[in-house]
Design a protein around this nucleic acid. Sequence first.
DNA 1: GGGCTCACG
DNA 2: GACGTACGTGAGCCCG
Length: 934
Amino acid sequence: MTFGKGCHLHLIDGSAFIFRAYHALPPLTRKSDGLPVGAVAGFCNMLFRYVENNKGADAATHVAVIFDHSSKTFRNEIYPLYKANRPDPPEDLRPQFPLTREATRAFNIPCIETEGFEADDIIAALACKARDAGGQVTILSSDKDLMQLVGNGVGMLDPMKNKRIDRDEVIEKFGVPPERVVDVQALAGDSVDNVPGAPGIGIKTAALLIQEYGDLESLLARAAEIKQPKRRAAIQDNADQIRISKRLVELDCNTPLDVELDDLEVQKPVAGDLLGFLNLMEFRSLTKRVADSLKVEAPPAPTAVTAPAAAIPSAAEAPLPFDTAAYDCVRDAATLSAWIARIRERGHVAVDTETTSLDEMRAELVGISLCVEAGRACYIPLGHRQGTGDLFGGAELAPDQIPMDLALSMLKPVLEDDAILKIGQNMKYDAKILARHGIRVAPIDDTMLMSYAMHAGLHGHGMDELCDTYLGHKTIAIKTLLGSGKAQITFDRVPIDQAVPYAAEDADVTLRLWALFRPQLHRARVTTVYETLERPLIPILAEMEMAGVQVDRDTLSRMSNAFAQKMAALESEIHELAGGPFNVGSPKQLGEILFERMSLQGGVKGKNGAWGTGADVLEDLAAEGHDLPARVLDWRQLSKLKSTYTDALQDHINPETGRVHTSYSIAGANTGRLASTDPNLQNIPVRTEEGRRIREAFVAPPGKVLVSLDYSQIELRILAHIADIPALKQAFREGQDIHAMTASEMFGVPLEGMDPMVRRQAKAINFGVIYGISGFGLARNLRIPRADAQGFIDRYFERFPGIRAYMDATVAFAKENGFVQTLFGRKIHTPEINAKGPGAGFARRAAINAPIQGTAADVIRRAMIRMPKAIAGMPAKMLLQVHDELLFEVDEAAADALTDRVREVMETASDPAVHLSVPLTVEAGRGANWAAAH
DNA sequence: GGGCTCACG
DNA sequence: GACGTACGTGAGCCCG
């Protein structure tokens, strides 16, 4: 790529990186020989983080790391004392300088330094050159000496604070725009670099003077006009020294360069080189993280028997480039037959469907794409339409398409053939579409789920993202075909010649991802997870989603009306209390009314300067006897129930089936939990009486009942097992009240006649532990002083020391490996665990929670996967999963038998892979509706 | 489109 | 020493 417009050059101030790394880290040494490597380690971490984050709109197309070559530069000829009072670098840092250059080259990033020049001069020259070529430049440094370069497409980025420094920030710092910064620096001098400047003049005064006189030369010429005698003397007496200072701080865009911009194009690291270097430095956890990121196996540590160099994969063999023009458009049966023959020959095929909607239950099939090997893909248009059609959208089919029935009948034997693997990206979607045409697709591989098994926590698993990340290719955006907003069209309206490259590319990408991921599953040790917890779930969920749940529209509609009336009454009451009308639904207006107009106490502004009006705030106010916040709380509850549930749910009733069909995302939640969308049926109200009534609208058809079974305290049981807490395990085995038991252990009170308040506190702690407890969080939850909460936690840890040990061990494991694991081997990555700042707290707690939440998620997945076989022949269907609950619809007469079978499957779901040292127990209920079944 | 709020486990 | 914090989700509304 020739550097020019659209290119973005990143210039990394290498010396700054080194010093930051050196001071930020303890003095590490290499284990085998004691070589100091702390700064190198930090430097590599920074570079790795940089490489990982270099994506998105601001990503570099070109990059270089620039170093200072030696301490003597041309500036010492101008002024021998320049930087003379700089102490020599620490003894243990010196040997690390050459290693940081090696590290840079190991990352495959150009490394630049020139004898006699400072890094800043080279940065200046490169920045000017890139700017003049029409490109954009970002300097990764916070060095104030570089700020003179800012402007006209050159910006700076403080890599530690991740803060951009643009013209405004420079003006804020120096009081003058970037082009006058050297004038200010020349006057103010710099004690660190020993730039003399004018004595007694600092940055503030210098800025004032430059603002007044325009620039340094004018100021020197008109120095006599300066009113303050001291300033006048300082300038007049030191004019030469000031001019020298300017030459010292001024960066030279004409510094000779021995590289071309085109040489700086961003290159992917070569796995063998980079891992080889990191391994040589004995950076074990970083080696692993980098290996994970590059999708190769980490080389064995040097102490072990060293593998032959050839065993380390070098750069991926040059892949076949994407060529959308090479894709086939299949318009007749003969061509389709040829493709089917190719599929049979190969034994596998990537499949993708194009439809008119993201809602699989309403979407109409428009076309199918297939791919048998990288670059060899086709699109079969089946339902493309042309012409304007009438008001009802019925336009005629575009010509030269194989009749849909014919094409599907030809494809059906292949798609259902047990000996031919069908590969898809989010195959549940396509399987459901094809199921509606009578095709039961099997067996299936799914690249989205492969990525999820390997990379949960690292990034999303959508095709565009995977393609960009792992194939280095940007897919055609669907937007370019469909448009967006009001003018958006459906896929059947896309001209076929435009549809072919888009659709066939998706199949091509899917096949390439599959070829890449398949061998990696083993290396990442997640084959079992993928094969037992991900892949088998696809048909299970597809069945549940297609079954849907019956929802009674009239019940919802009546509730909506009732809510609307109550809301109207509350609204006028609220307006009266407020002394005038306002939008009750606007937190902004409400905050102003409460804390400004009514001047209530206890308001806290959030980081955006808006008053917080969350339920906790309003509850506190209501408890003090204020009516308005109490009414608003009531109003909000009704508003939520109405808009999210009673109104919105009606819109999700499928006109054909009369039922509500949610969609579960398998790879949405990092921990292994499912997520329910469109609509979300995992958050139907239950905690309040009023909300729970919405569940009355979820009904069983005549002659059937709904049966709900849910795991009792599954996460606490898993915690008891994983952390190995004898007292908790004992309590679960004996079927005791776990929270009362905890309270009894902690506070030494008897179980008999326990104060409910004490039990409540113990319960909060039990839950808090699962979430990675903090004194702050517990205090807020229980509304007690933080010190008291901390006291509880301390006592809890004292009584159950295994919990703390588990937490510490989990966090340590995450820091070492970059991921945590469930009992079933599911990996959840924790890329932020070694971060600094508040993010570290989040990552820490998430790491503690993930194995517990994730193991529970694995358990119920196992139960679900075994369910069809267990209930085969019974007049029953599994309808919904709500994390620890399964909901079934069953003939009334078979409800008992079903309950027994399902309970058995759920309670033994961890066997035989994991033997839990606590029993899993399931509570069951049934009724004509979900409220009654719970 | 981001932030706030709130529904669930 | 201050910061800002319970874990995991999805959806509807307001507001710029």
